[in-house]
């Protein structure tokens, strides 16, 4: 690292471009931010649970065991699956959380990614195209927003069968306006910036301007919203399941486990607590990681992750 040549805004450190591969560079930057690193490990763990959990622990998670009814957590004399306690039917909580990871993450990730992609695309179009298209898209967003999302879900899921796929669709639709409005607002601001005009003067097509110049500026904000939305979607899914139109027992999700444990909060708090903890930890990890990504993807900020090594 050499000191900056900038004179306008104080000195800015200049980092030499490392010769190592992109993957190694990403790993190094991740290592620099310990919280983000821990978050990444946790998320990898969760994904592994989601993929392998149902294959290995499906039986244990659904087998009832009346001797283990409301078994308290941290009783290490029992089988390790009972370390987080058992539910009202004596099923081990740890196994259930691991197995539920699959449904939960599939629904949440599916809904968030779908709404992110659809919402952002519509938002970019609305922000960059003429007033008429923009009006149509915005009124569409208003309609979705003013329609009670729970009612929409009830109607759709009564008509279609409650399955993971349909749940994803319903949740995605209700979250589209968030991304649509945010991205449109940002596009309206960014499109007036001078580098966009510079691209227009060079003859860049509308598509190129939107994807090459505007989207990279807008994306970090949207990704941050998406990670926060993750928790919202998980809980929304649990309330749908609670109404009996979401995921149906014996299938499980974390949200469903939270709502199933609710009547027993005074006697067996762990039934809601641990699945709730899983939701919080996942959301928190995503948030930390998106924070890190925001810095790592921004050339102006990236040095913060590259410089820390020098200090030690």
């Amino acid at each position: 690292m050499t000191t900056g040549i900038d004179s306008a805004g104080g000195t800015t450190p200049i980092t030499e471009v490392p010769q190592s591969s992109a993957a190694r560079q990403i790993f190094r930057m991740l290592w620099r931010d310990k919280l983000a690193f821990a978050a990444a490990i946790f998320l990898v763990l969760m994904v592994l649970c989601a993929v392998l959990g149902p294959l290995m622990l499906e039986d244990q998670a659904t087998r009832q065991n009346l001797r283990g009814r409301n078994a308290p957590p941290f009783d290490f004399s029992r089988d390790w699956l009972f370390w987080l306690g058992g539910d009202t039917l004596g099923r081990p909580l740890l196994a259930r959380i691991i197995v539920a990871a699959q449904n939960t993450l599939m629904v949440a990730a599916g809904a968030v990614v779908c709404s992110l992609i659809i919402g952002t695309t519509l938002g970019l179009v609305a922000g960059y195209s003429g007033p008429r298209t923009s009006q149509v898209i915005m009124r569409f967003a208003d309609v979705i927003m003013s329609f009670p999302s729970l009612l929409l879900a009830v109607i759709v899921l009564y008509m279609l069968s409650p399955s993971v796929g349909n749940l994803v669709i319903v949740l995605a639709i209700t979250r589209i306006p968030v991304y649509l409005r945010t991205s449109r607002a940002e596009v309206l601001e960014v499109r007036e910036r001078m580098f966009v005009q510079a691209a227009q003067v060079m003859g860049a097509s509308g598509r190129r301007i939107v994807f090459r110049h505007i989207l990279p500026i807008v994306m970090p904000t949207l990704v941050t919203i998406a990670t926060l939305d993750f928790a919202f979607v998980m809980l929304a899914e649990s309330s749908l399941s609670f109404l009996g139109i979401g995921i149906q027992p014996p299938e499980i999700t974390w949200g469903l486990m939270v709502s199933q444990g609710r009547p027993y909060l005074t006697t067996a708090w762990w039934q809601s607590f641990f699945p709730g903890l899983a939701i919080i930890m996942t959301t928190l990890s995503l948030n930390l990681l998106s924070n890190w990504m925001r810095t790592a993807l921004d050339p102006v900020q990236r040095w913060r992750l590259e410089i820390a090594r020098k200090k030690k």
Partner: peptide, 26 residues
């Protein structure tokens, strides 16, 4: 065209090579 404020007329997320070579892409 050359704009007034070079801080704003260059995309902050593109390297100098990408900024200049964009002309060739277009």
């Amino acid at each position: 065209m050359v704009f007034q404020d070079p801080t704003q007329s260059l995309n902050p997320r593109m390297s100098v090579h990408d900024i200049v070579a964009e002309a060739f892409v277009i």
